[in-house]
Amino acid sequence: MSARGAGHPSGRFPGGSTGPDSGVRWTLPAMVIVLVGVVAGVVACFVMTRAADTYPLTHRQVDAHIVRVIGPPGGGRSVPAPGADVEVSWTGGDGAVHSGRTHVGPLPDLKGSVRVWADARERLDWGPPGNGTIILGSVLGGLAAASAAWSAGRLLRVGRRAWTARRAVAGWEREWKDITATGR
């Protein structure tokens, strides 16, 4: 029973609560929003895991030699990353020597080699996404989908209220025209 139906003119029960069924109206929308977020997160995880698994089909890891250190860690970046920007060279699948710039983690021995990813056209690439990236992407994707579902729900609620108010005003105008036309 609602507070108004129970005889409270304010529509509230003593103590300011809106009644025992106030949380019930949010249960189904909240469950739908959570379900949308979970499904979107699982789909994002599946897509990114699939991309990471198929990455070696179009890319390969090569041993590259450091030609020179280009700059200190984070040179030109807004947030410095540990390691250094280096220029590397490697022998491609076609037998030609290729070079490119990349960022390496902790600076390895300058006379040693580093493992880098190269695509089919012998351009350097970042490599497949790691587990942390996949997990973060899944969580953020789920949160974004849940936020979009909540926003869509709010838009629907506002639109329904506006439509109902418009229909009510149209009904009152019709009644007013009938009253003024008949003179009652």
Rank of each mutant, 00 (worst) to 15 (best):
Ser78Arg: 14
Gly71Tyr: 07
His65Phe: 12
Ala96Asp: 05
Gly93Trp: 00
Val97Glu: 09
Val88Cys: 09
Ser78Gln: 13
Gly92Glu: 01
Gly93Gln: 06
Glu87Lys: 10
Ala81Asp: 11
Ala96Tyr: 02
Asp63Ser: 15
Arg68Glu: 06
Pro73Gln: 14
Val69Phe: 11
Ala84Leu: 08
Gly92Lys: 07
Pro80Asn: 08
Ile70Leu: 14
Asp63Glu: 15
Ala84Asp: 03
Val79Gly: 10
Val62Asp: 05
Val97Asn: 13
Arg77Gly: 07
Ser78Thr: 12
Ala96His: 04
Gly71Arg: 02
Arg68Ser: 15
Gly74Thr: 00
Gly75Cys: 12
Glu87Leu: 07
Ile70Asn: 11
Trp90Ser: 04
Gly75Leu: 14
Gly83Gln: 10
Val86Trp: 01
Arg68Lys: 15
Ala64Thr: 04
Thr91Lys: 13
Gly71Gln: 09
Asp85Glu: 06
Ser89Tyr: 07
Ile66Lys: 03
Arg60Gln: 14
Ala96Gly: 11
Pro82Thr: 14
Ala64Glu: 09
His65Arg: 15
Pro73Leu: 12
Val67Asn: 00
Ala81Pro: 04
Val86Ser: 03
His65Leu: 06
Val97Ile: 09
His65Gln: 14
Asp94Thr: 02
Ser78Gly: 11
Asp94Val: 03
Val62Ala: 05
Glu87Cys: 12
Ile70Ser: 09
Ser78Phe: 11
His98Ala: 12
Arg68Ile: 02
Trp90Lys: 01
Val86Gly: 01
Ala64Gln: 00
Ile70Tyr: 05
Arg77Gln: 15
Pro82Tyr: 10
Arg77Asn: 14
Thr91His: 06
Val88Glu: 01
Pro72Phe: 04
Pro72Cys: 07
Val62Cys: 00
Gln61Asn: 04
Pro80Ala: 15
Gly71Ala: 13
Ala96Cys: 03
Pro73Met: 12
Asp94Arg: 03
His98Ser: 05
Arg77Ala: 14
Arg77Met: 11
Pro80Thr: 15
Gly71Leu: 12
Ser99Glu: 14
Ser78Asn: 13
Val86Cys: 09
Trp90Phe: 14
Gly74Ile: 02
Gly76Asp: 09
Asp85Lys: 13
Val86Ala: 05
Gly93Met: 10
Ala64Val: 06
Gly93Asn: 13
Pro82His: 05
Ile66Glu: 01
Val67Thr: 15
Trp90Met: 04
Ala81Leu: 07
Arg60Met: 02
Pro82Lys: 01
Gly92Ile: 11
